[in-house]
Design a binder for these strands. Structure first.
Lengths: 205, 205
DNA sequence: GTCTATATGGCGATAGAC
DNA sequence: GTCTATCGCCATATAGAC
């Protein structure tokens, strides 16, 4: 086990993994302690209860994910490039944090009050406000069709995230093998960029 | 309590509600029995175990959802109308079965083997194959741009489902009130149809 | 701070009367 | 078929030595 991390960090790391894989109710403090190589008693010494450990774990996961998305958008790029960065950013975020993202959809439905306090702490200025203003600017200049900026953003996030989140279900309903599904995911990044640009740009190529 | 239903049906109905709200691990057989107005012992008499009751519940939920989607598409409509029916169908399905849909994303990750046996039983001919053939036909006739039919379908499902599934998270990240979020959802049906048609139709209006 | 051992409570499942 | 009462287990949490 990592000697570079102290017990508290190791427990938190282990907790994230176990909570993401098993959910709150399915997680066992014994498994978390074992994974961290530390006794269950020490877990309670550091975090007092499973519930409090869960809150810490959720907060850390969320800050990891948010940080990963926020640093991808460069505001001075052309509009087409911004769309591309956005699609690639969300796509890779969903792939990289797939388990954690599913975890959020799963568990945060049951712990909405936790979501409130977590989302309060994030910095919205760069990612959201900047992006919304950029969309609005292009819209007012008549370069893109007249649609609400937020609708455009939601469409992009949806087309990036859904196929990754719903893979187990979609794969079976569409009767695609693992390889075929992977092929589909691989071409989606480019496809979604094209799809979005065709939908919003006023002039046809 | 409903006298029109026998004990077994009442238990299954109650189980669906409790499993959807709390997940497999979070569900209590006592709560299911109470909700059905039947003793916990009878629950075991009919279903033998929590696990078997869960399987029955999942199968029933899935058949309800699938039946709801399949009967919406009329194959002889124009392509624009098919897209509209598809968007409206999925949108209303996700709204109507929101809890159950989240439940599927949540629980089916952990019980993938259950998904296998459930999906085997569905009739794919009308909804999927018919739709794919229609998309392919329009594509070969040059009426829509050159894209894989399955990609188009996934895009549509994603834009319909994601904003409903992710509401608790999106609402907070986008800092929208409940009313504002509802307003956004209300305009999405029309917006997604327009968005899709602009993306795929070759001639501009 | 970290451990072993144990307390405490709750859950799924069963026994057995009716 | 339906119930009450109870078993047996396991999970969180704590006590207390080191």
């Amino acid at each position: 086990m990592d000697t570079e991390h102290n017990a508290e960090e190791r427990l938190l790391t282990a907790a994230i993994e176990v909570f993401c894989n098993r959910g709150y109710d399915g997680a066992r403090t014994q498994e978390i302690a074992d994974l961290a190589g530390i006794s269950k008693a020490s877990l309670h010494y550091y975090f007092r209860s499973k519930e409090l450990l869960f809150r810490k774990a959720v907060q850390k996961v969320f800050s990891l994910i948010i940080g990963n998305v926020a640093r991808r958008i460069s505001e001075e790029s052309s509009f087409e490039v911004v769309i591309r960065q956005l699609v690639e950013g969300y796509f890779e975020m969903f792939i990289h944090f797939r388990t954690q993202a599913v975890f959020f959809f799963t568990e945060m439905m049951k712990h909405e009050e936790l979501l409130d306090e977590i989302v309060k702490g994030i910095d919205r200025s760069v990612l959201l406000n900047g992006l919304m203003l950029r969309f609005q600017k292009e819209r007012e200049e008549g370069k893109i069709i007249d649609m609400e900026p937020v609708d455009l953003l939601v469409n992009i996030i949806a087309m990036c995230g859904y196929p990754i989140l719903a893979e187990p279900l979609l794969k079976r309903v569409l009767t695609l093998s693992n390889d075929e599904y992977q092929t589909m995911l691989n071409r989606r990044k480019e496809m979604v960029v094209d799809f979005v640009l065709r939908a919003i740009l006023k002039e046809k190529e």
